[in-house]
Design a protein around this nucleic acid. Structure first.
Length: 672
RNA sequence: GCCCGAGUAGCUCAGAUGGUAGAGCAUUUGAUUCGUAAUCGAAAGGUCAGGGGUUCGAUUCCCCUCUCGGGCUCCA
């Protein structure tokens, strides 16, 4: 006897269905637009398959294919198809995990006879995947007991390991990589869910999935890679295939275009093209040299940063690049960070290490005299160059190097000052980043990890001070539970660049370990000695990395104030050379970085060359300009030149862009 | 470090089933003097990443090494 059930929609409306109705029925009732886009359901906050039966009284939303959750499902389902294809093509292969990731998915395999995937295999596998998709195989969910699951995957060791992990723990404790593969039932009785595509292919999975493979197809396998089972180097290395998948071919195409755009902006490519820096192999991997133009940009970045720090009452210090082992024993680096440090040098009976961080040395500056509470907060700043040993495989352009310069400061303050100091610091960070044209921020509050040092009370004080700073500054943030450093919680500031990529840049860490290790103190108003708190902070993070991010953000077209060459002056003919030279000299006298060209090529060619160099302003001067003391101005990324601009007006325009940090050069207003 | 891939002129790339190599841009140079995205000519530039092997002969085939790129791990 069928009874009706009530479904609540997200907007609060109630709908009635016969008992046994599934999510797809709801989608159908909402009209063709919904039913076509529907990929899964969200029932009382839990993602379910389209054919899941609706629970009476629940709130159900339709997950559409083009939503973040919908795409995740499409990617997860495409990963299953990938697994089926590989198992078909390599009989006897073992499959491990295949979760969705940002913009795509991957799947890890162990191939028989220790075989490896090569690039040629990608094409073969894609073809097999398309064959599978064309069969319109359904995804059918089943739930099994642990022992049934172990039987089903008897010859799949990685699947068995996942099932065993499920049987021993709850979802929260589960390795996140594995959690996406599996779940446990609400009643606490461990079960495993599986999704069956064919009689022979079935995969362990939490789900949900698309109803059938016909909903897939806008995908592309992108690369092969090695990856350790569960991310542990001691585990066997598996063969991973990465892919991307979308709800439509248009969306896939858009993503592939975005990848191409990112490739065009690659700082390693632009760095060579624009003659900014390179990595001489004679020096060694991860050790860049900056050429004159790159060096100039870097100097401008540093100069501005120094000025801002000076305004914010920082004091400037300088410390050496190596120090005796005793220092790093005291700081704890040799115990906690030794694998990141370069090996020691033994000289005259002492052992020296290149510094991986500046904090121990700054702490010594603090402790060089007895400090009064009246001196605090004491803010010590340095462009400190540090050396960290990175394994060869992890080096990546300027973003991951072995020697780099931090815009590093350590703030020593009283516990009372901590909260205010963090708030003003966070404001200072965001102002600095904004001055470089970055404005889309997201913060992450990383809290106490499982393995930590110090008192719980200190952790609480520090974490809540960080949190109140975030609230005060009104920046959107997420809490990354357990992601803090072992010695302290921290705020990481991320930015999104011009094409939407997320970069981790600034970091603010509260530290109560180092003050203790170095036994530093201040004398309070009570005439007693107290322990200060310490804040580590870097705004650019590393100058090299920040340089790379800016280069990619601007695609090489730096704002006027950061452009190594701001103006190029082109005489129309060689009889205009003297005037061009006089214009150049006047601009230079005003501190504007200007270069002069000769009329040895047709004007068009010289303009083209200057524009390709991404110079913000290209000036053309000819007969009329000599008569009127004007210039013809070509603004970067603007097709139409402005003729007859008074040189004096032009100079003040450029100077204004310099001081205001205008992000892209703007066209001058003419009086005419 | 491990898995996959790639190294030909400063840069971007072509090339030969094994007979020691080319183009464009850049550079130098000669001519050209031109108001808005490529003027014409010439020269110079290479141990085809390095080493070893097979071969009458290797840049090409095989092995090793180095460097770079994509991942894993790690993080600024």
């Amino acid at each position: 006897m069928a009874q009706n059930i009530i479904v609540r929609l997200p907007d609060g409306d109630n709908l009635e269905f016969p008992s046994g109705a599934c999510v797809a029925d709801l989608a159908t009732s909402l009209g063709p637009l919904f039913s076509e886009a529907a990929i899964a359901g969200l029932m009382d906050g839990k993602l379910v398959d389209l054919n899941a039966e609706i629970v009476d009284g629940s709130t159900v939303a339709i997950v559409q294919a083009n939503s973040p959750a919908g795409r995740e499902i499409i990617r997860h389902s495409t990963a299953h198809v990938l697994a089926q294809a590989v198992l078909n093509l390599w009989p006897g292969a073992h499959f491990a995990v295949g979760p969705p990731i940002e913009n795509g998915f991957y799947y890890d395999f162990q191939l028989p006879n220790e075989a490896h995937f090569t690039d040629e295999d990608i094409e073969k596998i894609e073809k097999e995947m398309r064959r599978i998709i064309s069969q319109d195989q359904p995804f059918i969910r089943e739930e099994l007991s642990i022992s049934q699951g172990l039987d089903l995957f008897a010859d799949q060791p990685f699947k068995k390991e996942i099932i065993e992990a499920v049987s021993q723990t709850n979802t929260e404790g589960l390795d996140p990589e594995i959690a996406s593969e599996q779940t446990v039932a609400e009643n606490g009785r461990p079960i495993v869910s599986i999704y069956r595509n064919t009689d022979t292919f079935v995969d362990l999975c939490r789900g949900p999935h698309v109803p059938a493979t016909s909903r897939l197809g806008a995908f592309k396998l992108t690369r092969v890679a090695g990856a350790y089972w569960r991310g542990q180097e001691s585990n066997p290395q598996l063969q991973r295939i990465y892919g991307t998948a979308w709800e439509s071919n248009e969306a896939l195409e858009k993503h592939l275009i975005q990848l191409k755009e990112a490739e065009k902006r690659d700082h390693r490519k632009l760095g060579i093209e624009m003659d900014l820096f390179h990595f001489p192999s004679e020096i060694g991997g991860g050790l860049p040299v900056f050429h004159p133009k790159g060096g100039l940009i870097r100097m401008l970045m540093e100069d501005f940063s120094r000025q801002q720090h000076q305004n914010a009452n920082y004091e400037f210090v300088w410390t050496p690049h190596i120090a005796k082992e005793e220092l790093f024993k005291t700081s704890g680096h040799l115990q906690w960070y030794s694998e990141g440090m370069y090996p020691p040098m033994k000289l005259e009976g002492a052992t020296y290490y290149p510094k991986p961080m500046n904090c121990p040395m700054h702490t010594l500056i603090y402790s060089s005299s007895m400090r009064s509470y009246k001196e605090l907060p004491l803010r010590l700043f340095e462009f400190g160059t540090v050396y960290r040993f990175e394994r060869s495989g992890v080096l990546h352009g300027l973003t991951r190097v072995r020697g780099f310069t931090q815009d590093d400061a350590h703030i020593f303050c009283t516990p009372d000052q901590l909260s205010d100091e963090l708030t003003s610091l966070l404001k200072f960070v965001l102002e600095m980043l904004k001055a470089f044209g970055l404005s889309d921020f997201e913060a992450e509050l990383a809290t106490r990890p499982q393995k930590y040092l110090g008192d719980l009370k200190d952790w609480e004080v520090a974490t809540s001070a960080l949190k109140s700073a975030l609230d005060e500054v009104n920046i959107s943030y997420v809490v990354a539970e357990g992601e803090g450093a072992f010695y302290a919680p921290k705020i990481d500031v991320h930015v999104r660049d011009a094409i939407g990529r997320r970069w981790q840049i600034s970091t603010l860490q509260v530290d109560f370990q180092l003050p203790q290790r170095f036994d530093i103190e201040y004398v309070g108003p009570d005439n007693q000695r107290h322990r200060p708190y310490m804040i580590h902070r870097a705004l650019f993070g590393s100058l090299e990395r920040f340089f790379a991010i800016l280069l990619e953000h601007y695609a090489g077209s730096f704002p006027t104030w950061l452009s190594p060459v701001q103006v190029e002056v082109l005489p129309v003919r060689d009889i205009h050379q003297d005037y061009a030279k006089s214009v150049t000299n006047q601009l230079k006298a005003e501190g504007i970085r200007t270069q002069l060209s000769y009329a040895d090529q047709p004007l068009g060619a010289r303009i083209r060359k200057a524009k390709l160099e991404k110079i913000p302003f290209v000036l053309v001067v000819g007969d009329e300009d000599i008569t009127n003391a004007t210039v013809g101005v070509n603004v970067r990324d603007t097709a139409k030149p402005t003729r007859g601009v008074d040189l004096i007006d032009f100079i003040s325009h450029v100077k204004k862009e310099n001081t205001e940090h205008t992000t892209s050069p703007s066209v001058l207003e003419t009086h005419k």
